[in-house]
Design a protein around this nucleic acid. Structure first.
Lengths: 365, 365
DNA sequence: CCCGTCCGGTAAACCGGTTTACATGACAAT
DNA sequence: ATTGTCATGTAAACCGGTTTACCGGACGGG
């Protein structure tokens, strides 16, 4: 069949040769060329361009004219070698495919762009080697600074590499043992609120889906969960708790196991939306409806939460702010300022339709 | 309340000072230092490190020892200025938050990493200025090459900037008038299959949600849609067609309008999953159930498709392959090879539960 | 024994900027 | 008339590599 042919042939002939660059393919003009054309020295041009000298209007005009005429653009590589600055920052995420990190990255890049920085994004796929590689790029002068996110517990390697650097900011998840600015959310508070929300709806058999051991967010969210349970005088049953990974597949399996219990939970708190997605799949596997049979609440509030059926209630992380403030903190660091070493951003409970009162028949415990 | 305090104080004292770098904070060793220590010239060290000379084992050993002793790491900036190569490539997406681009980016980065390249990711938010900025970064030697994606029609500006460069690859959506390798999917074929799928299920009143005018993907997918409709002898009603944007909100509004029609459609083909999400919202607004009252099919097959209720049928784009092959094509270009100027990747119809036969009461037209 | 060739290496230019230290001329003050 | 100062600029070193052109000595062949 002749798919596409009409459109393509039509367009292919529209712009036979187009280039805005005067000497496309030719040599780029250097600062020496500009200097020569303007009848001054390269030093003068350099200082003029960097606002380190005030020139008489006539000279300035000649330089401007030469720049325009030759279409001069400073060679960034040379500039960097001279100054040691790159005007670029790195953004290290475990997995850019996950909406939480993608949204954070998007906000971070936008903010960086406003400040004239370009960003090196990197998705490590939780590979320690790649995390290390990002740090080495920093060391090698690839970038001026780094915003680092990881979600696998550190054995001291990352901490060693980061040490006391004055150009790294850590966001979302801790890397213990470093003395760089850290930007977290109120994990315990959020988990506490989510759990309270379930308890106030009348639930007492509440299951918990947690992430890998050894992570700050995991520990803190569990603390918040436990605090709410304690406060309400509800004992936490070990068979209602599944921890160890952020993988949706494991959450799915754990959820199925929960539901096979003689006395299954009436509510599930997933300590990340990615885990909540696993729970949704598990609940669907077991043909259990939300929130009629089991209530579900997540943590993150990624954009897709509203599209689930029913729309997912969740603790909302200020992901946009995490990204923007992350960059601003890094920028402060690069400018020699000393931003606070620890910032906690507030979270917010978003009530949608995935939490309801338990049905009375299930209310035996 | 004392959120977090336990965890934090415990960790903060664990690694008082840790650094793997011998002279952390001190000066970096240069190639001259290594040369001096090994008793050879910098030239020899450079050539040895770049495999441009074969040295007697004793000399090589001395150099290796010096490198280890001084913890020498080549200064990339200097290397780049000398060689003119950066070993970095750029990836330009309209919006990294959208799952389609995020997944593509993830695959691209993974492939680049395997080949020793680092990647500059950039999310332009469909801002022409930022798209241009990416191209300028290429021109300025920031990166060796660029994989470019845009989803706003070009007025010739981008085409002008790209021209006949030998280090740009265009993916997913065309930029007319350039002669660089382009990597697309079989848009017409996919749309044709999706539409056939609806027709074969018995639908005749089929609505179409398209994107902005002037884009290759939009045009081609509409062609496929029209071809299937024509082939089946179904006239396309203009009130069933909404085009002009990829924004879910507009798709939502258009869907609501469809449903308010005296004779509403029994099926909707959304030419991207982002539009399908808008349709899902619109259908929910109107309290219309899928697929009982209206069938829905999308295009892209992003990961979340399966989580919708019901799971969304869609034309799957090989997004992973788009990313990997995109990098490979770029790499070929950088190595002076000549990859094909146009590659079409196949798409696949994924049947889930969002398409069913129309109910008979609606079968009046 | 002498010449050519290969081995093992070096000196110096170069990439394209920035920056320090200094030079020249005009003009004001003494 | 001399000195000091400001305005306007410049020469040259430097950033840290790569690369070109060349060199001395050993060794092999005629």
């Amino acid at each position: 069949m002749l798919w596409n042919s009409i459109y393509e042939t039509a367009l292919l002939k529209r712009f036979p040769y187009l280039s805005l660059r005067p000497a496309s393919g030719g040599e780029m003009a250097t600062i020496h060329d500009v200097a020569q054309d303007a009848g001054v020295s390269p030093t003068t041009v350099s200082r003029y361009l960097n606002n380190r000298i005030e020139l008489p209007p006539a000279t300035a005009a000649r330089i401007d004219a030469a720049i325009k005429k030759l279409d001069y653009r400073p060679n960034l590589l040379a500039k960097r070698l001279s100054t040691g600055k790159t005007e670029a920052v790195g953004l290290v995420t475990p997995e850019i495919r996950e909406p939480f990190f993608a949204e954070l990255a998007s906000a971070f890049e936008d903010e960086a762009d406003h400040h004239g920085y370009t960003v090196f994004m990197s998705s490590t796929r939780s590979d320690r080697k790649r995390e290390i590689a990002s740090l080495e790029r920093l060391q090698d002068g690839h970038v001026d600074g780094l915003l680092m996110m990881t979600n696998t517990p550190d054995d001291g390697t990352l901490a060693g590499l980061i040490g006391e650097r004055r150009n790294v900011v850590i966001v979302d998840e801790d890397i213990p043992g470093v003395s760089v600015p850290r930007l977290f959310v109120e994990n315990s508070e959020g988990a506490y609120q989510a759990t309270r929300h379930l308890i106030e709806a009348g639930h007492r058999r509440i299951a918990y889906l947690g992430g890998p051991q050894g992570l700050l967010t995991v520990t803190e969210r569990r603390e918040g969960f436990l605090m709410a349970m304690n406060e309400a005088g509800i004992a936490v049953r070990s068979e209602y708790v599944a921890m160890g990974s952020f993988a949706p597949e494991l959450a799915r399996a754990a959820t199925v196991r929960f539901l096979e219990l003689p006395l299954p939970p009436t509510a599930i708190f997933a300590s990340s939306d990615y885990l909540a997605i696993g729970a949704v799949m598990g609940l669907r596997d077991a043909n259990v409806s939300v929130p009629d049979e089991v209530s579900l609440i997540g943590f993150d509030d990624i954009a897709f939460s509203t599209l689930l059926t029913p729309p997912l209630s969740a603790v909302r992380q200020p992901v946009e702010q995490l990204g923007r403030q992350g960059f601003l903190t890094l920028l402060a660091l690069l400018n020699g300022e000393t931003p606070p070493l620890l910032t906690r951003l507030p979270v917010e409970l978003i009530r949608r339709q995935s939490v309801a009162a338990p049905t009375s028949k299930d209310f035996r415990a």
